[in-house]
Amino acid sequence: MRALAQERALGDWAVKGLGCIGQIAIESLDDGTFLLSHRDDAGRADLTIHSGAEHADRLARFDDAENYRPLKTAPNLRHGWKMSLSDLEELRLALDHFYPGRLAAFFAFENGDLVTTPFRETLERQSGMYRIAAQISEEESDELIGNFCRSDGGCLRAILWRRDRIGTLPSTKLPPEKFDPGHDQAGAGGPVIPLLCQEACNLLVAEARRVVQAGR
């Protein structure tokens, strides 16, 4: 089957030396295969070897303590594994399990097609149980986003959206590099395939709802 444009782009990113994504190191081997592992695990000889992308979902779903990871871009990826992948298609499938939707977002970003949505617009679009989330105040939003989305313990995405249509920064409590798509949010300073955030996730919307409810 013909490689999809996104898989070809992934090959180009590897050639360019974008050897990491989030907490994962991507090693491109001469025979066209790939090895993935946790960046913290470099040099470890006791890693469990997995062959094939189908193992990625299980590894991505639970942290080191076997707790469910509802946010895959949270900096709590489990350790102790190495994954062997036979080609670009498998690499894409595996990375789509580890960081769902992020390759597509970066591909769109590189092609100038990634549309961002302001936080307020996301909230105003909600219905049902999430409708009240739009009642969150500016101060509460600043605090919530600054805490929930921070790369240190929150989420490793680079935020591209703004808080409102006039371009207010999502939070004054986040450092400027949180909004830089070229910055390695994992803190190691390597050339990375960035985890781009084009719109507030459902978890953040749910937190906004919780904040509004708590203030009532």
Binding site: L4, A5, Q6, P70, L71, K72, T73, D96, P100, G101, A104, A105, F107, A108, N111, D113, L114, V115, T117, Q198, E199, C201, N202
Partner: peptide, 15 residues
């Protein structure tokens, strides 16, 4: 309620 979100899917299939 999980990733990828429906909004993420707007950027899928760009082939």
């Amino acid at each position: 309620k999980e990733e990828p979100s429906l909004r993420d899917a707007l950027f899928f299939f760009r082939d």
